[in-house]
Design a protein around this nucleic acid. Sequence first.
DNA 1: GTCTATAATTAGATAGAC
DNA 2: GTCTATCTAATTATAGAC
Lengths: 205, 205
Amino acid sequence: MTTREQQRIETRGRIIAAAVETFAERGFHGASTREIAGRSGVTQGLVTYHFQNKDTLWREAADHVFSGLFTDIRGRVAAEAPETTRELARAMVRAYVRHVAERPAIMRFLVQEGHTDDPRIEWLVDTHVGQMHQHFVGFMTMAGVAADADEAVHLYYAMAGAGSLMFSVPALCRRVTGVDPGAPEVIERHADFVARLLVPDPPGG
Amino acid sequence: MTTREQQRIETRGRIIAAAVETFAERGFHGASTREIAGRSGVTQGLVTYHFQNKDTLWREAADHVFSGLFTDIRGRVAAEAPETTRELARAMVRAYVRHVAERPAIMRFLVQEGHTDDPRIEWLVDTHVGQMHQHFVGFMTMAGVAADADEAVHLYYAMAGAGSLMFSVPALCRRVTGVDPGAPEVIERHADFVARLLVPDPPGG
DNA sequence: GTCTATAATTAGATAGAC
DNA sequence: GTCTATCTAATTATAGAC
């Protein structure tokens, strides 16, 4: 690999990382390519050189944010080696919470873009969000955590919202509660809390 | 009241309504006063005339979004006339979900601004969000729904997130699930689902 | 691959006519 | 109270030097 290719990959990576942060903070319209350039230590012209236009940059940033969600959750669940269906379901919820806690940009991208039915939402659903939802609904219905597919939709948004909001508004959370949602012990407590909330102990004890 | 005063109030109201929509959709930086003017059927100069600058307009819009939360929830809870502490707690959760379902801008304002510790967040917490959180934590701890104040923080974000996400991303939700989060029956089902999730039946049955 | 310079567009805020 | 016109600054995207 030539030096130029290495340089290209590294620079693109820095720009994408800055783009993720900026789009998550300000949304597509609110983010400027100049700020993204500034954060990644390059000039605005170079951003256009590498990504043609703002829309393409947004897609690459979104790809970076959403990719690896499945793999990461599967890995985390496997590491816990759950033995019962209930423990498997809880492990999945915990894995999800930990994942979004470490990548709060996920939920911010969704909320920033999820209001209006534009091409970006279309792309996001077709590329990333759709299959995640299908898998979740399928599993939770099969595992008996949700009574049926209809209820699983409510369970899905309950988990996604309950698991992520705290990490999507870190400055607000710190100011209101004094709790730092970036602290590992807070993440662990929230993961466990939400897992027990969504997958409660059986009625018998 | 003179015609001019009526006109003033009515125009300001239209601008604020458009500002709420636009800020909720695009965030402070992404929203333009020109778009807000266009949506309310006036010119951009008039927005500045009535609200001096974008920051003041945002605060008035936020005030409009967050005001009445307490009153509305209290009214909805009273209308159900709950008799047990458990039913009271559930009624509060249902009231909260219904409220944010009909005013999804609430959660979008929080997510849009809650990331960075800027003056708007400071103002939002001091003016609206702080006391709401205090009341909730106090009640849920007292009612025994949360074990202690520490757990109540997690319960709070679980409720706020679980109860609102679906309504904060209506276009996304429709596209992913086919469910319309604006439909009254969907709101009712979600309110009931989240209430039972957060305030479960007692272990004994 | 990166920068500087620039064109065309759009932003927020002000001034003046009515 | 409302509109039009305008100023200044910031935006995206392009072109050309190195």
